[in-house]
Design a protein around this nucleic acid. Structure first.
Length: 518
DNA sequence: GTAGGGTTAG
């Protein structure tokens, strides 16, 4: 425009800035900001919103806030841009604080404002807050729209609250939103993560149009449920559709192969990804491949792959190697991986726990002690285990060792009876999974207090015979609990789904869908 | 003719 002698005005500036933000071109964005001041557009509301958006997208949060503060007045558009910008920069608490302030100031917040804050919470691990704000927006008379729903659904999916997810689904059906590709893709994801993989597929099949996210959500769901065959079938079906797979599609395919132990298949996909689809392998793909080879027992090959990588391996990759070493009891490579991980993420307790489990499985107690001392000196504490179960539309949260649940006496009774029955059938408590420095008999007690066992006992007490139980855990499932739940699924004749940080374990008739490798 | 909110993995 400049070259041709035109003078950019308000609309030209307002429509150029978001593009600058999208490509993170702060140098150009700063120039436009200078131009805005020069020609006196700095108090135009559209221009201000666009500037805030641009600085937010370019990760210049301080400058973003400065622009907002300097205007001297508040208007809903720039407030919305600020909340979104804070959220995008991971400043959740600031976003929540700003939002409360806007409400206090009597700003007339609209559906965009409320959707932004719901999205902010859902994207930053504040799932309960997202649900609460969604309820509140309706209480104050702001009607959720087509965009609000896919912002809310990931929160339902994260904490697996089928009740809230279903209610958002019903809302979408009533409002005619359910065929929107964003809404439907988010529904597929939500149902899959709530353990309802078949419902997810029903939604997927009914979609009038699908984009790559829809396909990925469905394949990711199958992968999480350990259904590698379905992932590959869907991948083939996708080839006949107009949608091209992207790098996420391949993480789904590769992780599915890894879960199912299909190392040959996985290696072929890894090759095809580059050769036939022109997708360059990222860290995530290497992590899948390491896990794929490692879980198949090819630990040396996995280590070779890491050493042959074009760039330094990240924590996900070393973590995949360490997990595989835990599965196959490889102390040497486990120590190598752990050393890297202690360097890359010294505060991550999970890595110490894995290494300790490797030592414990080999009876190397001095190793176990060494890890415990290291954790002490690094001031790393094991995250408390936490499990949820939804029973009759109420979510119950159980913390490891917590005795505060109102039905605690019944839970303890039930666990005692389960323990007797399991031992009769040959269960031996695996006290190796207890990392604390306590007496052997106390270890068994600690295992009984694991959150997943508490949640399952609660579910058994409060649901009728034969009802499937669905439990979500914040950490990887404990090895002793995994054994115990297999027994329970068998003699209680219950299907039990446990979603841990990685995947679903579907226990039925004494076996688990993961085939005991995870 | 202009700004501000959207789903997927590891």
């Amino acid at each position: 425009m400049h070259a041709e002698g035109f003078i950019p005005d308000r609309p030209s500036v307002s429509s150029t800035l978001p593009v600058v933000g999208d490509i993170e071109g702060i140098a150009f964005g700063g120039q436009i900001h200078g131009y805005v001041i020069k020609v006196g557009l700095e108090s135009d509301s559209c221009v201000v919103s666009a500037l805030i958006d641009m600085y937010g997208k370019c990760r210049h949060a301080e400058e973003m806030v400065r622009v907002f503060d300097e205007v001297g007045w508040m208007e809903v558009g720039s407030c919305n841009a600020l909340v979104a910008g804070l959220s995008r920069n991971g400043l959740v608490n600031n976003a929540l604080q700003a939002f409360r302030e806007f409400r206090g100031q009597g700003i007339d917040l609209n559906v965009v404002s409320w959707t932004s804050i719901v999205a902010c919470c859902a994207q930053n691990g504040k799932d309960m807050e997202a649900l609460e704000l969604f309820r509140e927006m309706q209480l104050v008379g702001v009607e959720p729209n087509l965009v609000t729903i896919p912002c809310l659904l990931p929160a339902c999916a994260n904490i697996a609250t089928l009740m809230h997810g279903k209610s958002a689904h019903c809302f979408s059906l009533r409002k005619g939103f359910s065929e929107d590709v964003y809404v439907a893709s988010a529904l597929v994801d939500m149902y899959a993560k709530c353990g309802r993989i078949r419902d997810a597929r029903t939604i997927f099949d009914a979609m009038p149009s699908r984009n790559v996210v829809s396909w990925n959500a469905m394949m990711g769901g199958y992968a999480m449920h350990g259904k590698a065959k379905d992932v590959m079938e869907l991948f083939n079906l996708m080839q006949t559709s107009p949608q091209k797979p992207d790098f996420i599609t391949f993480t789904c395919v590769l992780s599915a192969c890894s879960q199912a132990g299909l190392s040959g298949e996985g290696e072929r996909y890894f090759y095809k990804m580059h050769q036939e689809h022109g997708i360059v392998a990222r860290m995530e793909h290497y992590a899948c491949m390491v896990s794929l080879l490692g879980r198949a027992g090819k630990l040396e090959e996995a280590y070779d792959l890491i050493r042959g990588m074009p760039s330094e391996a990240d924590a996900c990759i070393w973590g995949a190697l360490l997990s595989s070493c835990r599965v196959h009891g490889n102390v040497r490579l486990g120590e190598i991986a752990a050393e890297k991980l202690f360097e890359l993420e010294p505060g991550n307790a999970g890595n110490y726990v894995l290494l300790s489990n490797i030592y414990a499985a080999k009876g190397m107690w001095d190793g176990v002690d060494k890890v415990r001392d290291l954790m002490k000196s690094m001031r790393v504490r094991k995250n408390p285990g936490c499990s949820w179960i939804e029973i009759k539309n109420k979510v119950h949260m159980m913390l490891a060792g917590d005795k505060s649940h109102p039905q605690m006496n019944q839970i303890a009774d039930r666990l005692e009876k389960l323990s007797v029955e399991m031992k009769r059938l040959g269960y031996l408590p695996s006290t190796d999974f207890v990392l604390q420095d306590v007496e052997e008999q106390d270890k068994e007690q600690i295992l009984c207090g694991h959150s997943e066992k508490l949640a399952i006992a609660l579910g058994l007490i409060n649901t009728s015979h034969g009802t499937p139980l669905r439990v979500i855990k914040n950490l990887r499932i404990c090895g002793d609990c995994h054994v115990a739940i297999k027994f329970i699924s068998s003699f209680e004749r219950r299907e039990i789904f446990v979603r841990d940080t990685n995947r679903f374990h579907h226990f039925k008739d004494g076996v688990c869908s993961c085939g005991d490798y995870w």
